[in-house]
């Protein structure tokens, strides 16, 4: 698979080189993104192309590359010639900064709201009528409940879900580190399948019929609801969840080599515009601000941020998901 990936990277870059030189009039921009943004960026790119043409008269073509967030980051590190990245979590962009120097370490302060133009959260997707009566986090470890979530080691969405479960147990009445540890251990005992990415888990739950509840990105859960027969699934909002912020950044070294610096910045800044925010809201992301209910409103849910609860991604990654971390300890016999 790795070899296939690298091969794919080579093919893609060859194509891009070819495409770039073939049409000098049109400028191309490559956005390396993660699984759950396919539908959103399809709409957003069309809107941006129109906006840019009207503003500068320049034709621009946006190309997308989608896979799991960690895999995408690794493709960029291994040489995928992307202009901008829009990944599931800041840690993956940090890794690009640390390993390649394509962008400065403080990249996250360059755009508003921690470079996150939209956010999401982790919700529960259950089957019709919620037969197992799942209302909140503790219901997930009731006897006979089977939970589907991807592997936190490979999936960004799964990491957000893990942290949400942890923080719930820590902050619950009588909560403590030990209680939280017991809770996540019990929770993952109820997981029959660990897919490598969010889309894989969604398929396992929705199409294979495995599990009673899927821990899902909010926008992905709505996508499932809209794509399946009416009433087949329901979304449950737990009492508390995490603000999942998928950040964006331009890769300085690549854009200056391609001569696309201004374009890449404008492309990302436009995400914060009224139109960008509206498209995000239409795809069930939560806009930065929605003061007058101008955009589609999603149900209120009490949330916490990774910075407040865990002191940012680097320390969360180290404590929970690194080799030998809390997640590995769960599976120690």
């Amino acid at each position: 698979m790795t070899r296939k990936c690298l091969f794919g990277v080579v093919i893609v870059s060859l194509f891009l080189c070819g495409a770039r030189s073939a049409s000098a009039a049109t400028v191309a921009l490559l956005n390396a993104s993660y699984d759950a943004t396919r539908e959103f960026y399809r709409d957003y790119n069309a809107a941006f192309v129109k906006y840019w043409k009207a503003k500068t008269g320049q034709d621009v073509r946006i190309e997308m590359s989608h896979t799991g967030s960690g895999k995408e980051a690794r493709a960029v590190i291994d040489g995928l010639d992307a202009d901008v990245v829009s990944l599931a979590l800041a840690y993956d962009i940090d890794a690009i900064a640390r390993r390649t120097g394509y962008l400065p370490a403080d990249w996250q302060s360059r755009l508003p709201n921690d470079s996150s133009p939209y956010s999401s959260t982790i919700v529960f997707l259950v089957r019709k009528g919620n037969p197992k009566h799942i209302k909140d986090w503790p219901d997930l470890i009731n006897p006979g409940v089977s939970v589907v979530t991807p592997n936190p080691k490979t999936s960004g969405g799964a990491r957000w879900a893990f942290l949400a479960a942890w923080e719930y147990a820590l902050k619950a009445d009588g909560g403590s580190e030990d209680k939280a540890r017991q809770f996540v251990r019990a929770l993952y005992k109820h997981v029959p399948v660990l897919d490598t990415g969010a889309r894989g888990s969604t398929a396992t739950f929705a199409e294979r019929g495995i599990g009673d509840v899927l821990l899902s990105w909010e926008n992905e859960a709505y996508l499932v609801i809209n794509k399946s027969a009416k009433g087949q699934f329901e979304i449950i909002y737990p009492s508390i969840s995490i603000v999942a912020q998928p950040p964006v950044a331009w890769l300085d070294k690549n854009v200056s080599r391609h001569g696309t610096t201004a374009l890449a910045k404008a492309y990302l800044e436009y995400l914060y515009s009224e139109q960008g925010q509206e498209i995000a809201a239409n795809h069930y992301f939560r806009p930065v601000k929605n003061p007058t209910g101008r955009y589609r409103a999603l149900p209120f849910i009490k949330t916490f941020t990774i910075n407040d609860a865990f002191g940012g991604w680097s320390s969360a990654q180290k404590k929970f998901f690194a080799d030998g971390g809390v997640f590995d300890q769960i599976y120690q016999p």
Partner: peptide, 11 residues
């Protein structure tokens, strides 16, 4: 092979 991929994805 999956463990190898997992390690790679943790860089």
């Amino acid at each position: 092979p999956l463990l190898i991929v997992i390690e790679l994805e943790q860089f």
